[in-house]
C-alpha cells in the first residue's frame, strides 16, 4: 500500500501546484481564498473558471489514461498495449474533428465532446461486433487496429477536403491535445464518465491477476472471460472516450505509466490499476504545469509535450528492460 500513499501525496502536491502556477501570479493564501470565491472577483474567476477545471481535467484524464492502459496491458498480458488499441481514441478524435468541421462545435459548446463520445462508443460497438461474442484477444486487437486505421483515415480525409483553412488549423490544434481553456462544464461532462469507467475497471482486479496464468487457468479459477472483456471495453471506452472528447489525443501516458509503476507494485495487475490511475494523474498534471513553465506565452500543447518527453522515456525503459526480455 506504500506506493499508493506516495502516489496520492505526489498527485495532491501536483494538483495544488497546478492551481498555483499560471500566467498571473497569485499568492498562495489569496489563491486558495479565491478558489472558494473570497477576495478579488478577478482572482476568483481565474481560480474557479480557468485553473480549477484545468487541474481537474489534467488529473481526471491522466487517471483515465493510466488505469485504462494498465487494464488493457493486464488483459492482453502485453506491456506494449495501450488504451487506444481498441480504436476508442481515434474514433473520439474523428467525432471531434467532424464537429469542428461542420461548425457544430461553434454553435454549441458541448457539441464537440458529445460527438466525440458518441463516436467512441460507436467504435467499441463495432469492435465487439467485429471480434465476435467469444472473440479471443487477438481478434479484439485486430478489430481495434482496423477501426483505428479507418477513423484515422476519415480524419485525414476531413482535413484533406476541408474548404476552410481556419477550421483545418483549429482541427490540427485540437488534435494535439490540451487541457487549457476548458470550462467546468467540460469537467461535469467528463467526470462522471471517467469516474464511472474507472470504477468499472477496478472490478477487473481479481480477473486480471488470474489472467496472468493464461485464459484457461483464469477460467478454472472462476473468472468469466466474456464478462472481463465486456467490462474492460465499456470501462475504457467511457474513460478514454470522455478523456479524448474533452482534451484531444494525449498519447504515451497509458503506455508509459503502467510500465514505470509495475515494479513498484510487485507486477501484480490488480495493484497496478489504482497505482496507474494516480501515476497517470500525476504525470499529466506535471506535464501540464511544464507547458505553462516552458513556453508560457506560446500555448505549448500538452499532447505534444507528452509525446516529446514520453517517447525518449519509453525508449529508455525499453533499453533498461532489454536484458529481461532477452
Amino acid at each position: 500500500m506504500k506506493p499508493l500513499l506516495a502516489l496520492s501525496a505526489l498527485t495532491a502536491a501536483l494538483f495544488l501546484a497546478s492551481l498555483l502556477i499560471g500566467y498571473s501570479p497569485i499568492p498562495l493564501g489569496t489563491a486558495l481564498a479565491a478558489l472558494f470565491g473570497a477576495g478579488d472577483p478577478l482572482n476568483a474567476m481565474v481560480m474557479q473558471d480557468i485553473r480549477l477545471p484545468r487541474a481537474l481535467l489534467a488529473a481526471l484524464v491522466g487517471a483515465a489514461l493510466g488505469m485504462s492502459g494498465a487494464a488493457m496491458q493486464g488483459f492482453l498480458r502485453n506491456p506494449l498495449a495501450e488504451p487506444g488499441l481498441i480504436g476508442v481514441s481515434a474514433s473520439a478524435a474523428l467525432g471531434a474533428v467532424l464537429a469542428l468541421q461542420t461548425g457544430l462545435a461553434a454553435a454549441y459548446a458541448l457539441a464537440l465532446p458529445l460527438t466525440a463520445l458518441a463516436f467512441a462508443f460507436g467504435a467499441v460497438l463495432l469492435v465487439v461486433l467485429l471480434a465476435g461474442p467469444r472473440g479471443a484477444s487477438l481478434t479484439l486487437i485486430l478489430a481495434g487496429i482496423a477501426i483505428s486505421a479507418l477513423a484515422g483515415a476519415l480524419t485525414s480525409l476531413t482535413l484533406n477536403l476541408s474548404p476552410n483553412p481556419y477550421a483545418a488549423s483549429e482541427i490540427i490544434f485540437w488534435m494535439m491535445g490540451s487541457v487549457a481553456d476548458r470550462s467546468m462544464s467540460h469537467v461535469w461532462l467528463a467526470a462522471p464518465l471517467i469516474l464511472g469507467g474507472l470504477g468499472l475497471l477496478l472490478t477487473l482486479r481479481g480477473g486480471l491477476d488470474a489472467l496472468t496464468l493464461g485464459e484457461d487457468a483464469a477460467h478454472s479459477l472462476g473468472v468469466s472471460l466474456g464478462s472481463i472483456r465486456t467490462r474492460l471495453l465499456i470501462g475504457s471506452a467511457a474513460a478514454i472516450g470522455a478523456a479524448t472528447a474533452v482534451t484531444g489525443a494525449v498519447g504515451f501516458v497509458g503506455l508509459v505509466v503502467p510500465h514505470i509503476l509495475r515494479p513498484l507494485v510487485g507486477h501484480m495487475p490488480s495493484r497496478l490499476l489504482p497505482a496507474s490511475a494516480l501515476g497517470g494523474a500525476a504525470m499529466l498534471l506535471a506535464a501540464d504545469i511544464a507547458t505553462r513553465l516552458i513556453l508560457p506565452e506560446r500555448d505549448l500543447k500538452l499532447g505534444v509535450l507528452m509525446a516529446i518527453v514520453g517517447a525518449p522515456l519509453f525508449l529508455h525503459l525499453i533499453y533498461k528492460t532489454r536484458r529481461e526480455i532477452g
Binding site: L213, S220, P269
Partner: peptide
Amino acid sequence: RARAAAWMPQSREIAWPIAVEDIIRLGRM
C-alpha cells in the same frame, strides 16, 4: 466449478514477473 476442480493447463503461462508466493496465492481466488 472453481471450488470443485483445479486445472493446470499444458501451456505454462506466467505473464508478469510476480513473486512465487503471490502466484500460488492466486489459487485461493
